[in-house]
Simulated scan of single mutants.
Amino acid sequence: MADWDAGQYLKFEDERTRPAADLIRRIPLAEIRSAVDIGCGPGNSTELITNRYPGARMLGLDSSPDMLAKARVRLPGVSFQEADIAAWNPDERYDLIFANAVLQWLPDHPRLFARLASCLETGGCLAVQMPNNLHEPSHRLMRKVAQEGPWAEKLAAVSQSRERIGSFEDYYSWLLQAGCSADLWQTTYVHPLADAEAIIEWLKGTGLRPYLDPLSPEEQSEFLDRYRIEIEKAYPAQQDGKVLLRFPRLFFVAQRQ
């Protein structure tokens, strides 16, 4: 994919930061010496960690230069590095590895979480939040428009570009095998947004990107027109004119034993 657009992402900063805030409140560690925020984006989640643990040595990692540029302006005292999380293999262990809305993009979760758990100090925590919305209308309709349009062949593999989220039982088992205890839960956020166009603007910063990036500007415009028609039907206006975007997210905090 092309580089992430931090400005587009931050149009809904409050809504995107809320799950990270909910996740950090469940971390049982009173004090830590070191933390890494993998997939740190523009630094909104990193800021929460530094506020919770002001004495910790903090590192933020992301693959997007644009996201990292925003993060460095936001938190000039924090070290940020460009890195491919799929290949990340640090030389040290951390008290906290924080991953907010990033690991759903990576494959082979059993191996992935075993590797991340191995990067924890004894007693350290891996705190993870992943969108679990592939079955919501917002994402089902992306696949529908991709499959039914003139771009179907071009986008044939795109719907497989995000990892299918496992069950509670899956993650509990994988984390147990990795030597961790696990606190797991799921929250469905309900975001009142201005209209169907606002839903599209939200998703243009994340879920729609793999569908739009391979298309020409003309194709992107037609794709969004078709998608807008479907979204307007799936998310009817409420009494106040707003639409309700349901957004399930899976969480866990794993502590290395």
Rank of each mutant, 00 (worst) to 15 (best):
G205A: 15
C180V: 00
A194L: 10
V190G: 11
D195Q: 06
D170H: 12
S181P: 08
T188A: 14
L184T: 00
G207Q: 02
E232Q: 09
I229L: 15
S173G: 03
Y172W: 11
I231S: 01
I199V: 15
C180T: 00
F223Q: 08
E230G: 04
F223V: 07
L203V: 05
K204G: 03
E197V: 05
C180W: 00
Q220A: 09
Q186I: 03
L184F: 02
L175F: 08
Q220Y: 07
Q186N: 02
D170C: 09
P214A: 08
E222C: 13
L215W: 06
G205K: 11
D170L: 06
A196G: 15
I200L: 00
L203I: 06
W202Q: 10
Q177L: 08
W202C: 10
S216V: 03
C180D: 00
P214N: 06
I200A: 00
L176A: 13
Y227M: 00
W185F: 06
L193Y: 11
Q177V: 03
K204Q: 13
R226Y: 11
P210N: 03
A194S: 12
D195H: 07
I199Y: 10
L203K: 10
V190W: 09
L215Y: 06
E232T: 07
P192Q: 08
L193R: 13
P214K: 07
F168A: 14
G179E: 02
E218K: 14
I231H: 01
Y172R: 14
D225C: 12
S173I: 01
G166V: 05
E230T: 05
T187D: 09
A198D: 04
F223M: 12
G179P: 03
G207D: 02
V190H: 15
Q220H: 09
D183M: 10
D183A: 12
S181H: 06
W174R: 01
W174F: 00
P217A: 08
Y172C: 13
S216N: 03
E222N: 13
G207V: 02
L175Y: 05
P210Q: 04
E201L: 12
S221F: 13
E232H: 02
G205R: 11
I229A: 15
P192R: 09
D195K: 05
I229G: 09
V190S: 15
S173L: 04
A198V: 01
R228E: 05
L212E: 02
K204F: 02
R226D: 12
I200F: 01
E232S: 08
L184A: 02
P217I: 07
E201A: 15
R226S: 12
E197M: 08
A194Y: 09
R228P: 04
D183F: 05
Y211N: 01
R209M: 07
D225V: 13
S216A: 08
L203M: 15
Y171T: 04
W202P: 10
L176K: 09
L175C: 13
